[in-house]
Design a protein around this nucleic acid. Structure first.
Lengths: 238, 238
DNA sequence: TTGCGTATCTGGTCTAGACCAAGTTGTTTT
DNA sequence: AAAACAACTTGGTCTAGACCAGATACGCAA
């Protein structure tokens, strides 16, 4: 005996599979029926319908856009965090249209976590860059980047929405020698959630990265929050 | 103005932070108050309390044990999927007590995904091993391993609960030349969910691995489902 | 001492609504 | 044509319960 929410999940999962296989009759522009329509259709309640939708969301089959509705999730971006392929090239290779928006740029003391990773002492400051990246108009990545101010004086504001890796190589002669990525499932709140059109507490994939140059000197510390259904990490062996 | 569920989340998050810092007065054996007690305490409803708990679960601060209650999540196991350090050693290094249980062992045709990854043709079969791994008595990993039958005749049943990597090296002279890991956030159902004491549709971290030997011949295909709060992946640069 | 049944506790699922706030759309005004 | 407003739709949050099923603890019988 299946519970009602699983029945609804299975029903929708089938439609989604068909939709992804090219049969677009079920959803217009990838939009699922509204919760209230599903309640009607299954003679159920919103609690149960939302249970089903939340499960599909956890699986990455659908995503929600805050107060706009539920949508079929496009295919995931396959991403190797330790490769130096930049976001634009990667997206283009996978037939997706990328965009980057610089949300803020500050020079601050910064959080302990970043200061420690970068090995900062006393009054040394960090440049904090906050960016939002989208694929085909859908925000998928909220990232905060911390750079030691001393290492990167006079950052070229015009280039902060492009590839930072490229900028660093060309204008600061950075040569990465090592990199450490930490990956965990987490949740987003407040500014991160809002920027990604997610609700408070929505699950995400969190990537924390520290990059080193020369003789193991850290020069970059990043926090990435990925909409979990938008991404699949690919890690080839060393 | 904070919504009620966020207030409850924040309150519990603070207690959990204190608990993890060594102040054990709030929770006995890491167990949170029951949902109904929290309803009393906050003059709220179970829906709202469960919203708060679900958010803490998504963050990995707490986990649920099906119909037993909610518990503070222990520190995560830090794991490099492409390293060949075995599970027992890794757990021991991080002061955790590991255990492995062989759930089933079959010789079958196997799912398309595994057959393709292993490059099987016609009637070639795979050995399917299903294992459950625990840390300090808490199940954290459900894994299904597919091995080409031809490459691994007469598998030593006695050793299937230990390190497979070691077994393969010692009894089949396997030398890994390459490995590909795919990581995504997903959800667990049915046998996987039950084995991990999770409910249907609970989020998890899914790792799909293909290992190659010699001249790029695939010899192992794995599906790992990790309780997401139990793990953090560490990916050093190539 | 060891089972075994039972009462109780826990979360899992569901009903049948309500009101709110943000996003969308259509209409009116400028 | 553009801006402003209003009506409507959507999900977000919440109330106040109900019943179910698995997990647990406990007392009783063998």
């Amino acid at each position: 005996m299946l519970s009602a929410n699983i029945e609804i999940r299975d029903y929708l999962a089938n439609l989604i599979a068909e939709y992804n296989a090219g049969n677009s009759e079920h959803f217009s522009a990838g939009r699922l029926p509204s919760e209230r329509e599903l309640v009607e259709q299954f003679s159920s309640t919103r609690i149960t319908v939302r249970d089903a939708l939340t499960k599909l969301e956890a699986e990455g089959l659908i995503y929600r856009s805050n107060r706009r509705g539920w949508f079929v999730a496009p295919s995931r971006l396959v991403y190797d965090p330790s490769s130096r392929v930049n976001f634009y090239l990667l997206a283009a290779q996978q037939n997706k249209t990328p965009a980057t928006q610089l949300i803020s740029q500050r020079c601050i003391k910064g959080p302990v976590e970043a200061r420690e990773a970068l090995g900062l002492v006393a009054k040394e400051k960090v440049i904090e860059l906050v960016r939002l990246r989208s694929l085909n108009g859908r925000p998928v990545l909220f990232e905060t980047i911390y750079l030691p101010e001393q290492r990167f004086p006079k950052l070229n504001k015009a280039r902060l929405e492009g590839s930072l890796t490229t900028l660093m190589e060309e204008e600061y002669s950075v040569a990465i020698c090592h990199e450490d990525n930490r990956i965990r499932v987490s949740a987003v709140y407040d500014q991160v959630a809002e920027s990604l059109s997610l609700i408070n507490g929505a699950p995400c994939l969190e990537v924390t990265r520290t990059r080193y140059e020369g003789d193991r000197q850290a020069f970059e510390f990043d926090k990435e929050y990925w909409v979990h259904s938008a991404i699949e990490l690919s890690i080839p062996s060393k």
